[in-house]
Design a protein around this nucleic acid. Structure first.
Lengths: 180, 180
DNA sequence: GTAATATACGGAGACCCTCTCCGCATAGCA
DNA sequence: TGCTATGCGGAGAGGGTCTCCGTATATTAC
């Protein structure tokens, strides 16, 4: 990749993060291109669709989430570790308003890889929590992750209510093993 | 209101229901007007924004939900009644893809009335379930309703997975009193 | 039945958004 | 320094939201 292309790509990603965080669903790809100082054509060459742009951003975050999951495997309380990680996931999902919605949709192969990585991390934490609690927690890990995303989405619908996300997560986690 | 205006209003609402159900977020107000056989100007005179249109549709449904809540107060199991009603709420929220999202947003006075009515019905069912279970269920009714909406939203993100909504609701309801 | 009037209609069009196409510029290389 | 592959950018097509205003019509009074 040519150096100017690389530079533009990076600028576009940075501008997109800002725009998505600020505007949520109302984000405009035009504005992103403008903010990054490139033409719309350049944006669409790098990212053929708004979704591709989102996937690229998400991919950047997934590694961090997986690393956090790895760390949390060493946490003395497996139940708390699971909760902490799900909360981190929710915060990631909330980071840009409306981003979650697209994350939940199709999104292609790149996003599938992200999902697999997230699912793997979540599965390990869930299994450890189950072992700790000595009971099988009858839930599909995918459902649990979707539910966490849904809570993040709902939390973002009322951005002024900062505590809502925590309350919603608490509500969701009532049924988890070794609940506080 | 002039008779032709009334007729057009009704046609617009019917067309809007179809369009929202079929297209979800991709719904086009232009198409709704076209489908209803009126010009765009007519649509915007009756409903100044897409949100106003949604609110009008929602208002139509709320009465039915409240009536269902009333019925369920007579159900022998208060816990089951609560669950059944929350499920009905989720189905309503799912009825048109993406409608939930707007429902969660501001929406003005008309929507506030709807929320109040829903909250009142939900509160009564929740209180009865608590009494039956002999325990106080520490949850804000608003949070519970938002969470149900969030699950409906998540369910609609994967319309091909019909059972997902049920699984997500089950997940949410694990922490409810007298859970099965 | 007809005239007067308030009310509502509808479509042209302004403006913005997404996304494409292609002539032009330039980075990288010999 | 010149060549070429690669990338840039903006004009513009197509469609969406929403407005404005000349035209049409339901309604009322006579």
């Amino acid at each position: 990749m040519r150096s100017d292309a690389r530079r533009n790509r990076d600028r576009l990603l940075a501008a997109a993060r800002e725009e998505f965080a600020a505007q949520g669903r109302g984000a405009s790809l035009n504005r992103i291109a403008q903010q990054a100082g490139v033409g719309p054509g350049t944006l669409y060459r790098h990212f053929p669709s708004a979704q591709a742009l989102l996937v690229a951003i998400i991919s950047e975050d997934v590694a961090a989430l997986c690393a956090r999951g790895e760390e949390l495997l060493a946490h003395p309380s497996a139940g708390e570790a699971l909760r902490a990680w799900l909360r981190a996931l929710a915060v990631h999902a909330s980071a840009m308003r409306g981003l979650v919605a697209v994350e939940a949709l199709g999104g292609g192969a790149a996003l599938a890889e992200c999902h697999d990585a997230i699912r793997a991390a979540g599965s390990r934490l869930l299994r450890r929590a189950e072992e700790e609690a000595g009971e099988r927690y009858q839930v599909d890990i995918d459902d649990l992750l979707v539910a966490v995303n849904a809570m993040a989405w709902a939390g973002e619908q009322a951005p002024q209510d900062h505590a809502r996300l925590d309350r919603l997560l608490a509500l969701l986690m009532r049924g988890l093993p070794s609940a506080g």
